[in-house]
Design a protein around this nucleic acid. Structure first.
Lengths: 248, 248
DNA sequence: CTCTTTATAGTCGTGCTGACTATAAAGAGG
DNA sequence: CCTCTTTATAGTCAGCACGACTATAAAGAG
């Protein structure tokens, strides 16, 4: 792109016969359903990997960025229209030759977090799209197993030092629900009083809903409601317990 | 890509007229020279941005991944041959339309850290390549200002929770040199006894060179030598002081 | 021989955190 | 109505990591 213009191809790359590539986006759309992490998958109708599940995605259009393409695909797959405000995070780009047996495809992968899980209905499309529990998702088509794993790892890491967890929650939520986000993504139980203390001690992470509003989901004492605060970074971070060797 | 095959284009994308893109890699190669952060730049010889400096980079070849292309370009630009063991980190992919005025280019950006700074000599190329102090690098061609800023931010963040800092150091180094890496990348002075205590308390980060070897660079007491340890993650992390609002 | 410079050792107090106990407020079931 | 269970919230306590700081050791410069 842009800027290699000098040493490697000092004459300007216009002189080179550079191969064209197909560029796509792949989406790892995550949500919480019934206390378990789910991912949005589509079923492939044809070879290769016919009948296998895959991450949703599609080609870049000539006049859009990868982010725009990801948002467009997301809207098409989920039927959501207020996709504008959603958190969309670029994971990395997968470019190994042969990752798609048909052609040379370079794919930019994104992760996306949804608070509630609208039953997906392909936008006027015959293909089946469905929420699948994270642990039941594999094996996926192409290299999507790895993309999905990278997505979870990235999201888990960002929970540590950003306020991203609220992206899994509806506009108003209880601290118990927020804690479930951490526990589900990290796969670790957390101490409730300590979690509460930490969250409330972090300025700007959550703010109480002033109307002393309370709401109960089930049996116990009603919980206070909070909404996401303005803070984007957590200082100090909320580290997941005892993890030996995080990926560099 | 791969795997959008279902909902958005259920028929399989072979039926679609997907536009081809040129795919390139851009490299932010960082090193420390005389206690200051430097970046490897090449001078552009022609429009657009003729005479401006840019990050080195180049096109993907048909049979290589972005990582392979980045390593190849790195070897060509620096003349280094032992590029194999170097740390190469994929930053993100820049795909905004119009970022290169000539054509539609999608670029995968990488950051790379070098311990010593070999004077770059383009691999049999006329273009000028040079180490430039980080603060004197702007303005760069294309969107390379942003790529360079992203590279520094990413590297700074990874210094916090990985042992990446040793990638800036030669095989054997003193704790003072390691501290300089942190101070230079973060732009913050650190307390020396506390830094030392923290580093040595982190298992596997550095290990002493057994031969009681010592080496002095200048005037003071000779410092003990260390080499990089096997640890890839730091627990707990070494946080940079008082940063309000890190990028999410 | 002293001064400066750099490395290394240690001290002290604050605050975050993990582990734990206690209380409050709801529903369920008798 | 009473009790048990469940969930939310409050509080305690010790350990330890970290920032700020002081002290000592070992070299070169003059």
């Amino acid at each position: 792109m842009a800027g290699h213009g000098a040493a490697a191809d000092a004459g300007g790359y216009d002189k080179h016969a550079h191969e064209p590539f197909a560029v796509t986006v792949d989406l790892a759309v995550l949500t919480l359903r019934a206390g378990a992490l789910h991912v949005l998958l589509v079923e492939r109708g044809q070879e290769p990997y016919a009948g296998r599940w895959a991450l949703p995605g599609g080609f870049l259009l000539p006049e859009e960025s990868a982010e725009s393409a990801a948002r467009r695909e997301l809207a098409e797959e989920t039927g959501l229209d207020e996709v504008a405000g959603l958190h969309l995070e670029q994971l990395r780009t997968y470019s190994e030759p042969g990752r798609d047996p048909r052609m040379r495809v370079v794919s930019v992968a994104f992760a996306c977090l949804l608070p509630e899980a609208p039953e997906p209905r392909g936008g006027g499309d015959a293909a089946e799209a469905r929420w699948v529990p994270y642990d039941a998702a594999r094996p996926l088509a192409f290299d999507h197993d790895r993309i999905l794993a990278d997505a979870r790892e990235r999201v888990g890491a960002k929970l540590e030092y950003t306020g991203l967890a609220t992206a899994f929650c509806p506009a108003e939520f209880t601290l118990g629900e927020l804690q479930q986000v951490y526990e589900t993504v990290w796969g670790t139980p957390l101490d409730r009083p300590n979690f509460r203390r930490k969250i409330l001690a972090t300025p700007g992470f959550v703010e109480p809903v002033p109307g002393a509003a309370r709401l109960t989901g089930g049996r116990g004492k009603p919980a206070a409601l909070y909404r996401a605060g303005p803070a984007t970074a957590l200082h100090p971070p909320l580290l997941r317990p005892s993890r030996e060797g995080r990926p560099a």
